[in-house]
């Protein structure tokens, strides 16, 4: 491992992007067949029309490998000195999923680990990847956000089953200069553990395991307090966005694209409204893919880069919020890339 540049001059620069969703599509009508809901109800209350679901036996690592390969292809170089996987749905409790993913991408031997920050995982992963580059641990980092969220959602819970979905997105970050297009701006991160109960899967961890070998019905599933989550999501994403934009020396009016965690169309609308970012500057794919957890932002970036919604030179604001509670935001000027 060589470090030819002084650490303080280094920036993490976006070099590749890719996304992947499993082929199985679930429509609102499919869900209405076994839930007390309808296509109209889901569309008007969440903005979601379809979402993708893993097929039986498919795991988060399978999604991550597909997206990771596409991001590496997009970067024009299949090497990476580290692999970071942001996920809420690892293949199993132990060990981490990232080493499997790295090995399947031909990267066995590199440092690889998971980051757990629920729907803000990609933002935490960006800061982590930038740190690996700044400290000289790696010259190039493959950061993947992947979630098989449907595997932890209660299929009979109307409030979450219609929203959460499966997918993966990935970026390659390389060592570069702060003034380059694609250089990651200051990253704003925060948490509030006094509100960890708002978004959780109660069973499966050490607390439940030390109490009893079995768990109460439903506790293995993802639970979310909708109203409180909505309010905090809007507050935290708007505040973190303002902080990140200010730290970058930008103004909110100078933001060309907002890439917010695709939580729910109504949250996205409320955040953009607070920030004064017009609809034509908001990237969105929630109608087609739903809320894909840690995959949400990189999948959105990959799809937007591919469909022309995101072009080189766009000053782009990223923000996310999720369980923890955890939130974050950062900025970058979109570089010239081939979409993965």
């Amino acid at each position: 491992m060589s470090t030819t540049e002084p650490v303080e001059d280094r920036a993490a620069v976006l070099a590749g992007v890719g996304g992947w969703v499993p082929p199985h599509v679930v429509t609102n009508d499919d869900l209405s067949a076994h839930l007390d809901t309808s296509d109209e109800w889901i569309r008007t209350r969440t903005g979601i029309r379809t979402r993708h679901r893993v097929s039986p036996g498919m795991a988060t690592s399978d999604l991550a490998v597909e997206a990771g390969r596409r991001a590496l292809d997009s970067s024009g170089d299949d090497r990476a000195g580290a692999v970071v996987l942001a996920t809420t749905t690892p293949d199993r409790i132990c060990p981490a999923t990232a080493p499997d993913v790295a090995a399947r991408l031909g990267l066995a031997g590199v440092p690889a680990f998971d980051v757990s920050a629920v729907c803000t995982g990609f933002l935490y992963g960006l800061a982590t990847a930038a740190g690996l580059i700044a400290t000289g641990v790696a010259e190039r980092v493959l950061l993947i956000g992947a979630d098989a969220f449907t595997t932890i959602v209660d299929p009979t819970d109307r409030s979450t089953a219609v929203i959460f979905a499966d997918g993966a997105g990935a970026v390659v970050l390389r060592a570069g200069r702060p003034e380059e297009p694609g250089a990651l701006g200051p990253v704003v991160l925060g948490t509030d553990g006094t509100l960890s109960h708002l978004i959780r899967v109660p069973a499966g961890g050490s607390r439940q395991r030390s109490l009893a070998p079995t768990h109460a019905p439903g506790e293995q599933f993802f639970q979310m307090e909708g109203r409180d989550t909505f309010r905090h999501a809007v507050d935290r994403m708007a505040t973190a966005s303002r902080q990140a934009v200010a730290a970058a020396g930008w103004s909110m009016g100078g933001v060309d694209r907002l890439a917010a965690h695709q939580a729910n169309a109504r949250i996205l609308h409320a955040v953009a409204d607070r920030l004064g970012i017009p609809a034509e500057h908001q990237l969105s794919n929630i109608a087609e893919v739903g809320n894909t957890g840690a995959a949400s932002i990189p999948l959105l970036l990959a799809q937007s880069a591919a469909d022309g919604g995101l072009e080189a030179g766009h000053r782009t604001l990223l923000t996310a919020f999720g369980g923890g509670l955890a939130w974050g935001a950062t900025t970058l000027t979109w570089p010239k890339l081939s979409a993965g």
């Binding site: 109203r227 309010r231 409320a270």
Partner: peptide
């Protein structure tokens, strides 16, 4: 119920 949160946000703004 989420409408009430949205209403609260709009009233504030």
């Amino acid at each position: 119920s989420l409408s009430v949160v949205e209403l609260s946000l709009i009233l504030e703004k």
